[in-house]
Amino acid sequence: MEKKERTTNRREFLKVTLGAFIGGTLFSCSLSDLKNPKTMVKTPIRTNILRPPGAVPEEHFAQKCIRCGRCGEVCPYHCIKYFDVLSGGVFSGTPYIDVMEVPCYLCMKCVHVCPTGSLVPCAKEEVRMGVAVINRQVCVTWQQNKTGLMCKTCFNVCPFSGIAIKIDHDFRPYIVEENCTGCGICAYSCIADQYPDNNGQKAIRIEPIKWKKIKEIKLEDIKKS
């Protein structure tokens, strides 16, 4: 009981301290001191930088999240990090996952420890952190006539291969967007950056679900290619 109290008190202290720090940082600066004041209140979520599984819509996240750090503490893969003031502005202290550093392996531990409902418990297949997008000009399999390679790495590592990632009649991968969790394992594992002509560029990126129109890439387009 005493240990639980100490943990709670520590989290409350961190919460209050962080809040005071953010407030002091933001409001002690005049607008002229900031290169771009709008970036302090603009969400830092972007390509490959995503919220953990089960996150509520971004417009509500910063308000609900109390920056307790439990999601990161429980993550066995250490993929959950936290924005600082410079990178996150008012979103400072909230969790994110950089899928190119460590993707989300969908263990789903974080959603069960969130005390405020910022991360909502859900099944793995219901996770919608983002959606994978394949750059066919970079993918070595889509460019197999030029590369002479046929890679199935993204298909093989996908937790829902055959559902979220499928292979067309020419053995080229494509995303079934409505089934993609956005975990980032495919993007992280992509080997296209090893092909000399790609100059270190991966063939897959993960776009936050909010900014990606579902079914933008239609199956008919795949068949025509």
Rank of each mutant, 00 (worst) to 15 (best):
Y174I: 03
V157P: 11
E178C: 04
D170E: 14
C183P: 07
L149G: 00
I163F: 06
G184D: 09
A132P: 07
S161P: 07
M150I: 14
F171K: 14
K152P: 03
Q143R: 13
H169N: 11
I165E: 02
F155M: 05
I134C: 07
C183V: 08
I175Q: 00
C180P: 07
C154E: 02
I167Q: 14
V176D: 13
C139L: 02
G184S: 10
G148E: 00
D170Q: 15
Q144H: 11
K146I: 14
V140G: 04
V157H: 10
T153W: 00
S161A: 13
L149K: 08
S161I: 07
N156V: 11
N145S: 13
E177A: 14
L149W: 02
N135K: 12
K166Q: 15
K166W: 06
I175N: 01
F160V: 13
N135Q: 08
F171E: 15
W142Q: 04
G162Q: 07
V133E: 10
Q143E: 11
K166R: 15
C158S: 08
P173A: 01
E178A: 03
T181Y: 07
V131H: 04
C183Y: 08
S161D: 13
I134K: 09
I163V: 15
T141G: 00
V133H: 03
A132N: 04
T153C: 02
N145K: 15
G162W: 03
F155P: 09
R172Y: 09
I175C: 00
S161F: 13
I175G: 00
Y174S: 05
T181S: 14
T153Q: 05
D170T: 15
S161Y: 13
I175K: 01
C158K: 11
C154K: 12
R172V: 04
P159H: 03
I167W: 11
P159G: 02
W142I: 01
T181N: 08
V157K: 11
C154N: 09
Q144K: 14
V133Q: 10
N145W: 07
R172K: 15
A132M: 05
L149C: 03
P173I: 01
T141A: 01
Y174L: 05
G162F: 03
C151P: 12
K146H: 11
N156L: 14
G184V: 13
E178D: 14
N145F: 08
D168C: 06
I163E: 12
C180S: 02
I163P: 02
N156H: 11
N179S: 12
V131M: 04
G148H: 00
C154V: 08
V138G: 05
R172P: 14
C151V: 07
V157N: 10
Q137E: 15
D168N: 14
D168G: 06
G182V: 07
H169G: 03
P159E: 01
C139D: 01
V157W: 04
K152Y: 06
